[in-house]
Write a protein that binds this DNA or RNA. Structure first.
Lengths: 149, 149
DNA sequence: TTCAGTTGTCAACAAATATTGACCTTCAAG
DNA sequence: CTTGAAGGTCAATATTTGTTGACAACTGAA
């Protein structure tokens, strides 16, 4: 099953509903009709046939998701969660930046109390700086996450 | 844009090709025609219009992916390998752990050269420890990412 | 000026998809 | 035996999608 076939299979609201319903638990024909508020048997039949690769029936006539069906479900959910995920990655980066900056400020303050900045110069600053440069490259260039706008 | 609209947009092989081509670099109308071996302008026009939400054009007439377009691309790729994202998050955590640990080791080594551990005790250790505890909680509990097995 | 290439739009049609409603069989309860 | 529900199939039709080919405005080079 190629990508476009998978997308074709779940490119109708009713079929997405069917996949989600069957992910919860296996259902029979009439159960599905009731659950999705479909009045026409023909309509459900049509969409079930479109989902052929994604569902299986057991010996009792219950429909459930096949392996491909669960893969499709993951894809559907990842599409829905995508923006949340990216904004989480963005938050992760900004939080890291705040922690590193605060860490440097605290370290510098403690160093100033002792009038000994060598440790900050030699260790804390280079390590945190190198980390943030790498993390920035990874976030902005590799993941293409826009931190502004 | 709902899930089924996103899937509808990329449920045709040619449109998947277009999204992949534009992910590489922005292209103009004729460039796309040549690259995808399309003879009819009308055909390309039809599919570009279907991809309306996923692409933008700049002032020079170049088509490129919009934010949603990159989201769609990620979905297409996740359909093929949907677990890669989680393994990236796992790598991110482990890398952070290595960096923090190395940072502490380097800081400790520099401190030992000066025989002054106060800075490490008072600043570096508490900050990095607090960060890793929070990050662990977030990764393991919230994201449910399994670092072992 | 002409010619080729770019960048499309549009009408027409073919093909696929979505929906409805009629119809069928089986089975169990009243 | 009748009734009604389950579990569908099928034909007809409406709507959308996909494709072709004609056309047109603009641009730059010969």
């Amino acid at each position: 099953m190629s990508s476009d076939e998978l997308f074709g299979a779940v490119s109708h609201p009713l079929r997405i509903e069917i996949v989600k319903a069957l992910a919860e638990r296996p259902l029979r024909f009439a159960d599905l009709k009731r659950k999705l508020r479909i009045s026409s048997s023909g309509l459900l039949d049509f969409h079930l046939k479109k989902l052929d690769d994604l569902i299986t029936t057991n010996e009792e006539g219950c429909y459930s998701l096949s392996g491909r069906g669960f893969a499709a479900l993951t894809t559907v959910e990842s599409a829905a969660r995508y923006y949340r995920l990216r904004s989480a990655q963005k938050r992760s980066f900004l939080l890291n930046l705040v922690v590193v900056t605060l860490g440097n400020i605290i370290t510098l303050w403690v160093a100033s109390q002792q009038n000994n900045y060598a440790l900050w110069y030699a260790a804390v600053l280079p390590v945190t700086l190198a980390w943030m440069i790498f993390y920035s490259y990874w976030t902005i260039v590799k993941r293409r996450i826009r931190l502004w706008q």
